[in-house]
């Protein structure tokens, strides 16, 4: 528990630095926010605004106060999860995030499941059959996996399995004709809660392609680390002891090699989290899944900076927290881990 407490304390300067960075970034974006407020919703021909009006709006939004005061009030708003409103939709950003976040969580979890379920076995088998054709095949596959852009993989899967073969749906999270109440926003969970088998199958079918597109590149990454880790462990004296006392190859593998080899793999899952958070944006755009990613994409296109600012801060905090959890988990799993 001491490790966990120290880790949490170490988080404070990082979060502080992060907030300063994001605030500074938002304030240096091109365009005067006051003029943007006055100009929004008007046709381009009426874009002239009087100097007095600008000054008035600046005062109204506190833009004439010193920077540190602006930062302070911004931070208190952010801490209360008040992230301002979108310039284009006039909706509260945090409300929109709350509505969309479950879709992103669901897709990211699907991606993580694919990454671990494919990456660990592939890496393990490749290491146990090192230097055979199995190993070479997996090496080729993992090289492709780490080299392909997520969205190209997404388009390839969409084209093959949706456009050409017609096996799986290509966009959305649920068939448009299907009616499913979604209290949690995680459609898989909602379908289970509602005991709606057909909806469950439907939403899972919508999740397959995005999940594969998002999960396969980090799976390649995890497979490479797993392979190296298994090979490291396979040379340890305790493995030779286990072999010498007559345990079968597979029993040694499962009980002695894999368990110890998985330790470093846990840290890689933390790295994979960064990959998943980046990739989810791109994959959501390809499959129109309506999560945080497609919202941010919209914000980029429309230069909707409040949304972009909140989104980047939000995802960075999520990323930091995931890494914290991974660190603590690692310390739990491996008492030798010295965290400084």
């Amino acid at each position: 528990m001491k490790v966990a407490a120290r880790r949490v304390v170490q988080l404070i300067p990082i979060l502080f630095g992060l907030s300063v960075l994001v605030f500074a970034w938002a304030r240096s974006l091109p365009g005067d926010p006051a003029e943007a407020v006055l100009a929004s919703g008007k046709p381009a021909s009426q874009l002239t605004v009087s100097r007095e009006a600008v000054a008035e709006v600046r005062h109204l939004y506190g833009l004439d106060r010193p920077l540190y005061a602006q930062y302070g009030s911004w931070l208190t708003h952010v801490a209360r999860l008040d992230l301002g409103q979108s310039i284009t939709t006039r909706q509260s950003v945090s409300g929109e995030f709350r509505r969309r976040f479950p879709a992103t969580v669901e897709l990211a979890l699907a991606g993580l499941a694919v990454a671990v379920a494919v990456g660990v076995p592939v890496g393990y088998i490749a290491a146990r059959r090192a230097h055979t054709w199995v190993d070479h095949l997996s090496l080729g596959g993992t090289l492709l996996g780490v080299s392909i852009p997520v969205f190209v993989l997404a388009f390839a899967l969409k084209y093959i399995f949706s456009v050409k073969l017609g096996w799986l749906p290509s966009i959305g999270r649920l068939d448009v004709t299907r009616d499913l109440s979604h209290p949690t926003g995680l459609y898989v969970l909602d379908a289970i809660v509602a005991l709606d088998g057909a909806a469950l199958v439907d939403t899972l079918r919508h999740l397959v392609l995005p999940g594969l597109a998002l999960g396969l590149p980090p799976a390649a990454f995890i497979a490479r680390i797993t392979r190296a880790s298994v090979l490291d462990v396979a040379d340890e004296p305790y493995v030779h002891t286990a072999e010498a006392k007559g345990l079968s190859h597979s029993a040694v593998g499962r009980r002695h090699v894999l368990r110890n080899a998985l330790l470093p793999v846990t840290t890689v899952v933390g790295l994979a989290a960064g990959f998943l958070l980046e990739g989810v944006t791109l994959v959501e755009v390809v499959f129109a899944s309506g999560g945080m990613g497609s919202f941010l994409f919209q914000a980029i296109i429309e230069r909707d900076y409040p949304v972009l600012q909140a989104g980047i801060l939000y995802l960075a905090v999520v990323f930091v927290v995931i890494n914290l959890i991974v660190d603590i988990l690692y310390a739990r799993l491996d008492p030798r881990a010295q965290i400084t």
Binding site: P13, I14, G17, L18, L21, G274, L277, E278, T281, L282, I312, L315, A316, F319, V320
Partner: peptide, 11 residues
């Protein structure tokens, strides 16, 4: 550097 790394690369 830690602060910069707290933001995923693409973002």
């Amino acid at each position: 550097m830690d602060v910069m790394l707290a933001i995923p690369g693409l973002l």
